[in-house]
Amino acid sequence: MHIFNPDSLILGAAGFNAGDMLYQLLAFLVLLFLLRKYAFGPLMGIMKEREQHIGNEITEAETRRKEAETYLTQQTEALREARKEAQALIEAAKKQGEQQGEAILQAAREESNRMKEAALSEIGREKEQAVQTLRNEVAALSVQIASKVIAKELDEKSQEKLVDDYLKEVGEAR
């Protein structure tokens, strides 16, 4: 094993070379320039682009969410409206049905009343007519009796008998 040369410990392996420094500086600056132009520039560009893209996506997603919420509210509102309408329709139909039933019932009642009235008045008229007929007949009978009495000139006894007979006859006919 060799022993270290103290010089090499302090100044590296090969002493001091000014050219190295110049070369290192130049190399670093060239590297910096090349990296900026060909690597980091585009890379940072795409990172910024992605950042914007993500930002846009988030904004869009938020907009979509808001839209969806609006739609949901609208749909709920529409559903409630429809339900209300249906309820109203049913209600109306029920009411109409009731009214119609009532009306039919009313009409039927009126009709029956009218028919009853008509029947009653018919009966009354018939009765009147019958009474009238009877009266006429009685009058005719009376004239017949009178003419018979006059024609026969009966005695008091037979006349009485005759009247009785006739009255009986009328009574039976009645």
Partner: peptide
């Protein structure tokens, strides 16, 4: 200027 060729080589390789 004096150049240490080893340094030159390694700087180039690293870059």
């Amino acid at each position: 200027l004096s150049f240490n060729l080893s340094n030159i080589l390694m700087i180039t390789i690293a870059s």
